[in-house]
Amino acid sequence: MILFGILLAAIAGAFVSMQTVFNNKVNEQTGSWTTTMLVLFMGFVASLLASLIFEGKNTFTLQHVQLWYWFSGMIGVGVVFCLVQGMRRLGPTYAISIVLTAQLGTALLWDSLGWLGLEKIPFTPAKLIGVLVIIGGILVFKFGGRKETKSESPVAE
């Protein structure tokens, strides 16, 4: 069960990495918002196709849709805005290190508090230590004598 979950998360991470490279190629030829618009359009088309293939007509039976679901896309747009601003002010290495740290911190906070009706996973000191070691690893990875690359671009996933 746990290994299956980790495998799924790793698949997601691998695709995030590839998508970042591809989006960067687009971003080299045009602006951040033009790229973001295209990326989200492609994401929409692919998700709709997958939904039609796997769910068929059920794709359009949307029950219990709460109003805020229609604004969920704003989060992704907020990500792009924040990353563009952060990178411009700090440069990629600093900005991405902070971004990754914030991602993990938010994740731990969310599990511990069980907000938005997600299953609560009790906080333990071991979890905090684990997250801190991972963040330490990120910092060593990012600042460990490597030239800055453009392989992380401020574009939505």
Binding site: M1, I2, F4, G5, I6, L8, A9, A10, I11, A12, G13, A14, V16, S17, M18, T20, V21, L100, Q103, L104, A107, L108, W110, D111, L118, E119, I121, K127, G130, V131, I134, I138, F141, S151, E152
Partner: peptide
């Protein structure tokens, strides 16, 4: 699906490792 199975922290951790590895 991963978040449903193993929670947010573990999912984001594994995701980031795979992401940085492949990059």
């Amino acid at each position: 699906t991963a978040i449903q199975q193993i929670g947010v922290t573990l999912t984001i951790s594994a995701l980031l490792i795979a992401q940085l590895c492949l990059t």
